[in-house]
Write a protein that binds this DNA or RNA. Structure first.
Length: 241
DNA sequence: AACTATCGCAACCGCGCGGAT
DNA sequence: GATCCGCGCGGTTGCGATAGT
């Protein structure tokens, strides 16, 4: 016995590790279908009861992350992605808390998707994924945030990323903020990062990335849809030299 | 076609928390 | 109060699939 410390979970010899086989999955699913949530067992007992040579922890992980019948497979929707970004801005890396708001998604799913997709996307847009603030604008005070403003021009060799903070003047509900995200898309040269208090007022930071120069050279304006409130012409004359 | 690099995801690992004793 | 124990969480790793050269 280990006094004062933790007993290793998988120290028994002969326990299997690595990818699960179809047979193992079947045994675990059968066991949980029969015994279900009725209690009378703990995860540590499951391998013995189900006839598996795995540690209980591995069984629990396999069930919660892969075998649970209520899991949603497949790609994350735009709504889910936006929700993850929003929740991460408020909760940080508390994946289990974030997963509560996304039925059918596991914390592991969300964590993986964040690390492989969203994090990279934010970085490409010039946002620190940890703070949800622009890398080079962290000390800008709120008054300055209210003024449309762009970063200094970058050398031509670098991909062009333009950041335009937009503070909504309307009494914008969280719902409307979410609708704003609908104009976002992979084929668009812009993306949105939303921050709102979930009650009423909110702040929308719009980040323009990609070939902005060609997008804006013919016209120094951009039409932004304000949910049900119609369209507003964002003055982008700031892109002009 | 062969090799290498990158990506995406499943699974593992170690730690902390909280309940039970 | 100290210790044990089970569970859940977050970080990290391993590896197959895919893309690029």
């Amino acid at each position: 016995m280990i006094m004062g410390g933790r007993k290793p979970c998988c120290d028994e010899v002969g326990l299997r590790k690595g990818p699960w086989t179809v047979e193992e999955d079947g045994k675990l699913v059968d066991f949980l279908r029969i015994r279900g949530g009725g209690g009378g067992w703990c995860w540590r007992d499951v391998p013995k009861l189900a006839g598996l040579r795995r540690c209980g922890k591995s069984c629990r992980l396999r069930w919660t992350n892969y075998l649970r019948p209520d899991l949603k497979r497949g790609l994350f929707s735009e709504e889910e992605i936006q929700l993850i970004i929003d929740l991460h801005a408020r909760l940080g890396n508390r994946w289990s808390k974030i997963a509560v708001e996304l039925p059918g998604r596991t914390d592991n799913d969300i964590k993986n998707y964040w690390n492989t997709h969203i994090k990279r996307k934010l970085i490409r847009m010039g946002i620190d994924p940890n703070t949800h603030r622009r890398f080079d604008q962290q000390n800008v005070n709120e008054e300055e945030e209210k003024v449309l403003k762009v970063n200094s021009p970058k050398p031509p060799s670098e991909p062009e990323v333009v950041v335009v903070p937009v503070v909504l003047q309307n009494d914008t509900s969280a719902g409307n903020l979410n609708e704003l995200a609908d104009v976002d898309g992979d084929d668009q040269p812009w993306s949105f990062l939303m921050e709102n208090d979930g009650v009423g007022a909110g702040e929308l930071t719009m980040l323009l990335s990609g070939d902005i120069a060609s997008s804006c050279s013919s016209s120094s304006s951009l039409w932004l849809k304000y949910g049900d409130l119609g369209y507003e012409d964002l003055e982008l004359g700031c892109f002009d030299d």
